[in-house]
Design a binder for these strands. Structure first.
Lengths: 200, 200
DNA sequence: TATAAGTTTAACCAAATGGTTAAATATGCC
DNA sequence: GGCATATTTAACCATTTGGTTAAACTTATA
């Protein structure tokens, strides 16, 4: 395995992501980010003038992965149910790799001071799902429902376990590996759920 | 309408709940809580020695409402699907009255420093649903599924819109009243979903 | 009226924290 | 070598914040 040398800027962004995601904006310390990046606080401010500026950089990239842009996938010519199955697989995979992502994004979105950072809204996701749904509905291939409500349910079912992870670990007396296995099973379970909901 | 005079302690707890729920632990200021309660900081510390102690009091009450204890409802002798319908109605009603509850509880649960506050775990909810489910499953009245996965889905579907509320308001160009109406519709939609999932 | 508890005011403290600065040192590049 | 940029060190500053204290004032009650 080749060791790729990260530039200082990259090291900082990586460290900032880690700390912000773990501790939230208020809970994060510039000193802590500097420590994780293996540099000192002065250099941190040398690269990113303020905590706010640094946060914005990190957050921008993250919010877009949380509200996934499904463009290509949803424009494929396959049944709507299959698109949703693909969504579930992709999204759960993302969450398994970024278990802190949901709480981080939802906190920021709900933070008055940080709402200015939210530039690119996930209108696309909703629009694409709705359009793709109605095409299929007219063909009589899916049951009648409100696509907006459906996408909320879908995302909710995917993210909830990651938000409540500490509680679930305790409830099931499980460790991280067991949790991940439970989420793998969950992918199949959710696919079954949406099939039942969507199939007329 | 009779004006009921709140005791100072009650005023403080009410104010603390409001501020903690809105700003989170880190984001909350003792001065702010005192202001909302209409008293001064000295008196605040006179009643509750520290921020931690005050937070614990508020959080204790809240976590139990977030993971609802369904004891009586689930022991009723009615079909499992009906129990779930009752759950949805009750839980969505609670969330409509406490829209900040989910983010507050989930943040606290995920906060290392605050994990000591979590004493009473919601094992009951999971146990009751599971037991109630298996009784009904043996009678062939519900489809086969993993009750733990199901309860996660149920809670996720209920809470997600409240967590993503700022985004949804923006996406649908809606105000608070419209959002509440959307959630009222959602109750019916979710009932349909679970019926489809559970009915063999 | 005397006593105790509740409440206010205002000043104060110590620690944490975001951010700055200046000088020294290292590094790469012409 | 000499120059610019990157990096470190370390001290420093202003502000915020949780928490304390002491003295004065209010209120109810015995």
């Amino acid at each position: 395995m080749v060791q790729i040398e990260l530039s200082t800027e990259e090291k900082i962004l990586k460290a900032a992501e880690e700390v912000f995601m773990r501790d939230g904006y208020d809970g994060s310390r510039m000193q802590d980010i500097a420590d994780v990046a293996g540099i000192n606080k002065a250099l941190l401010h040398y690269y990113f003038r303020s905590k706010d500026k640094l946060f914005e950089k990190v957050f921008d990239a993250k919010i877009q992965s949380f509200f996934p842009q499904m463009g290509e996938k949803f424009s494929q010519d396959i049944p709507f149910v299959d698109k949703i199955h693909i969504f579930i697989e992709g999204y759960m995979g993302l969450l398994l790799k970024n278990p802190y992502l949901p709480l981080f994004v939802l906190n920021t979105v709900n933070n008055k001071d940080k709402s200015a950072f939210i530039k690119k809204l996930p209108i696309e996701l909703s629009r694409q799902v709705a359009q793709s749904y109605y095409v299929e509905f007219k063909k009589g291939n899916v049951r009648e429902l409100n696509p907006a409500q459906f996408i909320m349910s879908l995302m909710g079912m995917c993210i909830f376990p990651f938000l409540a992870k500490p509680i679930l670990l305790d409830m099931f007396k499980a460790d991280n590996a067991t949790f991940d296995k439970l989420m793998e099973e969950r992918i199949q379970e959710l696919k079954r759920y949406v099939t039942l909901i969507l199939t007329p």
